[in-house]
Design a protein around this nucleic acid. Structure first.
Lengths: 334, 334
DNA sequence: TTGGGTAGGTAAAACGTTTTACTTTAATAT
DNA sequence: ATATTAAAGTAAAACGTTTTACCTACCCAA
């Protein structure tokens, strides 16, 4: 069953294709089509259930009403929740989202950009990784709206939305110190992205400002793509061999691995051992005792991303770049 | 900066558009294009970074290499993990995914189907809700490959992949009874989908088979779209006013709300109060004591879905429908 | 010498829209 | 009476591909 085309409608209504097109696109008035014709055509469209072929439309107009979303991993709750919020808001403005996960692979990220390009997406929302600067720059050079979020690329000159990772990290460490902690560990990942580096910098600076000597052996950098069992081993080693009274986990999945270790070695969180996790997770509220976390303002991030994108899309000229840095919130639980 | 077209390549190589097209599509041999020309053109394509415009391609060929994925909510970890697995596997075969969340709204689901239709997606993977049977039937009538997963629609005659919800639920209840429990509650949702109904039926049948009288007041049906605070209130009321020694939660988010209640009213899970949650969640393993769960075989579900879709896509004739029911696994923790 | 076959290619239609530039008719102004 | 303008609409080009049907030149067999 072939689907209807604008031509079928035109024939049925006994008018030209042009006329139907004007009516579909709400330009009937301005192109002085009579009320009678408008009504007739609209009725036929309604009855026949005709829907314009978006592909043909895209080919002709050059835009697709699709926004490409490139993230690290849709199965990570931070990203899936952001994705949902962005999808929601975009949907209301008539935009669809195509997403894909890079899995932190530069090659995959590049491929994704190419694929989005050949699909002529109208805009790009990217949580980037190092190594794709050139590709992003090409998009910008071609005049595509691009917004980075969660992680920034210092060399790229475009809008960015993200949480204030440095301060969030700093404050977490400060709160440990205020509780009298001295031996504070950091469990982080080795992926080389701004946001992780800032968390590290915040950790270091807070120690320094409080006159505590930075000890490299208290910082554990977990390899990104490794099996969880190995991660658990490494954290276990750290906990068992070092004198530690507090630990900041730089991501929620690392914290989850860390909590598994604690359960395994039967170490209790309490007065002599404190934990803070970066990025909230349902498991943390439920945990006994509750796990303190740095909450990223998901809603606000999504809101700002989509606001910037839509603003950019609705004007043809390139807008001023904006760097939106949103404070994260330290939630203390026990 | 306009992007390159096949014409630009043709001009540069001093051959016809047709020739370039044949080469791009690997039909050069079969169309007897000389080695020399092939090489020349390929070199130019390589150097110029030309990528065919997929939109034009889609318009001409009628297929998009895009698969539409319609789910309830991408921010639910069950769906986001399935989505990731499907995306992965599809990607390897050159297919992209467009997804959207229905939020359990019939209207939104219908809109999504229409939107996918007008975008000419090659296939549909749908976790359906009641009320869109007609729309799905239309897709099938038009010859589109459609696969349902997680939830089936009994009236629709197409392939389906999902877990064996009835038996998983039955076994959970049986395990309670084997532990000597008598007053077993079910906390479920009021959305009217197969998979939820099966869980309910399994609960009922297990009680019946063991000679325990079904008590309607022990079954709490939570309204789907309500605030979590209200859910917590309702569960709290149930726990406080009824004599209960075991409870099965029909979804993981309900279980999480339930655990929050237990924490709040300071009721311990143990010998006199047992809990099983349907669908695993990281919080359950970490919880003290560990929460037993019914684990859905995500990987297998995704695998089967994509296998069926790809098989269907690679043949032009409609294949035999398949109903793949995969056993779920009861994981006992403590 | 003719006919057929094949190697190596190309012109042009088609996919379903949008949009520009144009036509026709009627009304109005001078 | 004539020029101008407005109203109502349309023909055809263009977007970038794929694909069908064709063309030309050459070779070889009968």
């Amino acid at each position: 069953m072939k689907s209807l085309s604008i031509k079928d409608i035109a024939v049925k209504a006994n008018v030209s294709i042009t006329t139907v097109s004007f009516i579909i696109n709400g330009k009937a008035k301005e192109k002085s089509i009579s009320e009678a014709v408008i009504e007739k055509v609209e009725k036929i469209i309604e009855e026949s259930g005709y829907k314009p072929n978006q592909i043909a439309r895209s080919l002709r107009t050059g835009n697709s009403n699709i926004i490409g979303l490139i993230i690290e991993d849709i199965s990570n709750s931070f990203f899936s929740r952001i994705a949902r919020l962005i999808e929601d808001k975009a949907y209301k403005k008539g935009y669809k989202i195509i997403y894909s996960s890079t899995e932190n692979s530069v090659d995959k990220a590049k491929e994704l950009i190419n694929m989005f390009k050949s699909r002529k997406v109208d805009a790009y929302i990217i949580s980037p990784i190092k190594g794709i600067e050139e590709d992003i720059q090409m998009l910008l050079d071609d005049g595509n709206p691009v917004i980075l979020f969660d992680r920034n690329l210092p060399d790229i000159n475009t809008s960015y939305v993200g949480a204030d990772h440095f301060n969030a990290s700093y404050q977490s460490i400060q709160s440990f110190i205020d509780q009298g902690k001295k031996n504070i560990a950091l469990v982080t990942t080795d992926i080389n992205v701004e946001q992780i580096i800032e968390r590290y910098d915040g950790y270091k600076k807070a120690l320094e400002d409080n006159g505590i000597k930075y000890d490299d052996s208290l910082v554990l950098k977990i390899h990104f793509n490794q099996e969880e069992s190995e991660t658990i081993e490494q954290i276990k080693t750290l906990f068992e061999h070092k004198k530690i009274d507090a630990v900041l986990f730089a991501t929620n999945y690392l914290a989850i691995s860390g909590l598994k270790v604690l359960k395994k070695i039967n170490k209790k969180i309490g007065d002599d051992f404190a934990v803070i996790a970066y990025d909230d997770h349902e498991a943390f509220e439920l945990h006994t005792p509750g796990i303190s976390t740095v909450q990223q303002p998901l809603e606000e991030i999504a809101e700002n991303v989509i606001k910037l994108i839509l603003k950019q899309l609705s004007t043809k000229t390139k807008l001023e770049n904006q760097q939106v840095i949103i404070p994260a919130k330290l939630i203390i639980r026990d």
